[in-house]
Design a binder for these strands. Structure first.
Ligand SMILES: [Zn+2]
Ligand SMILES: [Zn+2]
Ligand SMILES: [Zn+2]
Ligand SMILES: [Zn+2]
Lengths: 127, 127
DNA sequence: AAGGATTTTGAGACTCTGTCTCAAAATCAG
DNA sequence: CTGATTTTGAGACAGAGTCTCAAAATCCTT
């Protein structure tokens, strides 16, 4: 068998991710965990995040420095609008990309099977 | 004054980038340069790519491992369709994102000022 | 509540990407 | 050719992420 254990490190990480709708880097999480009195090793932070992402419970995003960041997130297909100043993330339903798909197929013979779309700006409280 | 010199390393890098419409990582370029008999140090490869990107002559893209990759590219705003198997890139004009912009503003009070959009699939010769 | 099979963790070594330094080499104008 | 200026390369360095393996935690069974 392959049972899953509920452990203190995993709960501490989930608690931080649950608290804010924004992406956290592994380093950020380590710092937060240290502050909150339940330190967790880097290895475990990475393992836990990877596990959450694999289960579809967290979204993985590379920030502009190429660092992996994670956020709790619905599993269905959608996109994100990220606030430049506070990092807050709004989910955005996908749609209206059909024109791109059509154009690419007819113009270049390109067969699309995926896309990534992300918005940047200022959220209501940061404008 | 601040003159720009034409040097062998810069020309060798430009020659490789010009040859294929796809993104190259610094490591890839170093390997190619070694093979082609005009080795260039990593430092110089990075400096040259950074310089090209700053001048708007090359596009910077983080691949799925967070590594910086570069490609010669028009400077105006547009997007890319990238072939999963051969890496070939087709430029795609931007458009049809107005519905997203409207929805975000009215629904969340989010003030958009930028976006990134990328397509993945198989190009004509790889289907 | 104790024992034991199984899963998880942490410390630290390690790899890899990318940056920085500075003396040596290349470029170019005069 | 000479000399001022720019560029390069070797290697030290920093930071993200991976890996190992013994020790610790979890949970099931008795
Ligand atoms: Zn989301
Ligand atoms: Zn979508
Ligand atoms: Zn382009
Ligand atoms: Zn666009």
């Amino acid at each position: 068998m392959e049972t899953e254990y509920e452990t203190r490190p995993r709960e501490a990480i989930a608690r931080i991710l649950r608290a804010e709708p924004r992406f956290f880097s592994a380093a950020e999480l380590c710092a937060r965990l240290d502050e909150s009195g339940t330190p967790v090793s880097r290895a475990t932070v990475y393992r836990t995040l990877e596990r959450l992402a694999a289960k579809g419970e967290a979204a993985l995003r590379l920030n502009d420095r190429g660092e992996a960041t994670f956020m709790f997130c619905d599993s269905g297909h959608h996109h994100h609008a990220i606030c430049r100043s506070c990092g807050r993330v709004e989910d955005v339903a996908c749609g209206a990309l059909d024109s791109f798909v059509d154009r690419l197929r007819s113009l270049h013979g390109f067969q699309l099977d995926d896309h990534s779309l992300e918005f940047h700006g200022k959220c209501r409280s940061c404008v």
